[in-house]
Amino acid sequence: MIGIVNYQRGNLNNVYRAFTSFGFETEITDSPENLERYNGLVLPGVGAFQDAMETLKKTGFDTAIKNYIQSGRPFMGICLGLQLLFEESLEFGKTKGLGVLKGKVVPFQISLKVPHMGWNQIRFSKPSRFIQSDLNGESFYFVHSYFVVPEEKEIILSTTSYEIDFVSSIEKDNVFACQFHPEKSQKKGLKMIKNFGDACARYTSH
């Protein structure tokens, strides 16, 4: 079973339907206790960093998510769900994140329009255990004003070019997280969701 963390800010149906459309058993969960039952966990991207972090703390999801990740089971973060993994963000003043990964979340300081909004390509920097290499070079939907700067460069899975090259996805052991929205990226995005779902299914059979 794949769980989707609900932090009560937006509609998670798109992520949910993306998984169920491939037949993966999936649920949206309000309860941190449920995380024990999953062999796949998705932290979606809804809202602003500070607000999301407060909700995760208040509900107890912060500790539960960290424990889940430590257990080695597959984890997927989307957009804000990627940013929240890091130590701190500069959005609306400094805010502490989950601190699962070393590094921070910083704003774009470029001459191009911000937010970086729309379809842009990803370039893989290394092979992934979750995502198939045929998605290298494809376009995905982005909408963000901040991006992650990991301290451990070896966790960078892909970069994307928008005046600068920024980190558009990371992968470290059982953790995969992307800045773009696969659930909003039509056919290629759904393919990525399927890749991750398949990895979760493989984990069960171990």
Binding site: V46, A48, P115
Partner: peptide
């Protein structure tokens, strides 16, 4: 709205 849901 931006504080609650993000500027985007």
């Amino acid at each position: 709205g931006a504080r609650k849901f993000g500027s985007q």
